[in-house]
């Protein structure tokens, strides 16, 4: 046991700490971008015209309907061969991971936002219209603040998922937690110790994120919009 502990502290933890920062460097921008994409796409899907609605619906079907691994392979391995107007876009592994996760996450987020938007009573939109509030202001100051509160538990859940599927970045050569862990395991054959510790890192990340999300829920909580924590 002491040997295992010494191994953990000397070899595994310093390596994983570097991987942890790489993971956070992907998760945070991907989560923020994902929420932004989700809010935009969700809003367009409910209030957009015919074409914005069609396009965003296609986007959601595409990104919910294909495996994330395939999407990542596409962004990293296939995109360089796709020529758009004579330009080939080459993404670094980290860029490909962030874009891949954000687009996938945004598709799911837009579902939660859409649900939140649909839960808002039509009467409030009529009232806003009757006051002379423009449709844009109505969406920004009446609809979204309410929809976001209603969608928050779902959106938080999606962020928790994102933290875990960020481990897939390792397959496009990003040295994040899982990638670093696999490297150490291969070099030392200490699979048990390494993967248990990697698991604990994710558990800590998810716990921290859950705590932050609950903090946000509580901050945004107002009478009539309480989030019931079980």
């Amino acid at each position: 046991m002491n040997e295992a502990l010494a191994f953990a502290f000397e070899r595994v933890i310093p390596g994983l700490n570097a991987g942890l920062w790489a993971s956070i460097g992907i998760i945070v921008p991907a989560a923020l971008l994902g929420v932004a994409i989700g809010v935009t796409a969700g809003t367009l899907r409910v209030y957009g015209g015919v074409w914005p609605r069609r396009i965003t619906n296609c986007y959601v079907s595409l990104f919910r309907g294909t495996p994330l691994v395939v999407q990542l392979y596409f962004w990293y391995f296939a995109l360089p061969y796709v020529s758009v107007g004579g330009v080939n876009l080459i993404l670094s592994p980290v860029q490909a991971a962030i874009i891949g996760f954000a687009l996938c996450s945004g598709a799911y987020q837009s579902e939660y936002i859409r649900g939140g938007l649909l839960s808002i009573k039509r009467g409030q939109l009529l009232a806003a219209q009757a006051l002379g509030i423009t449709p844009l202001h109505c969406i920004l100051s009446v609809v979204l603040p309410q929809a976001f509160r209603r969608a928050l538990p779902g959106c938080g859940n999606e962020i928790i998922y994102l933290i875990k599927y960020s481990s897939l970045a390792s397959i496009i050569t990003v040295n994040e937690l899982t990638g670093v862990g696999r490297g150490i395991a291969k070099a030392t054959f200490q699979n048990t110790e390494v993967y248990v510790i990697v698991g604990l890192y994710y558990l800590a990340l998810v716990t921290l994120a859950g705590w932050l999300l609950r903090l946000i829920e509580n901050r945004l909580s107002i009478p009539g919009f309480e989030v019931k924590n079980s």
Partner: peptide, 16 residues
């Protein structure tokens, strides 16, 4: 709409 005020049966207050 600025010149015409409207009161609804279901109040339609902004809940947030």
């Amino acid at each position: 709409r600025q010149r015409v005020g409207m009161i609804f049966q279901d109040f339609n207050l902004f809940d947030h």
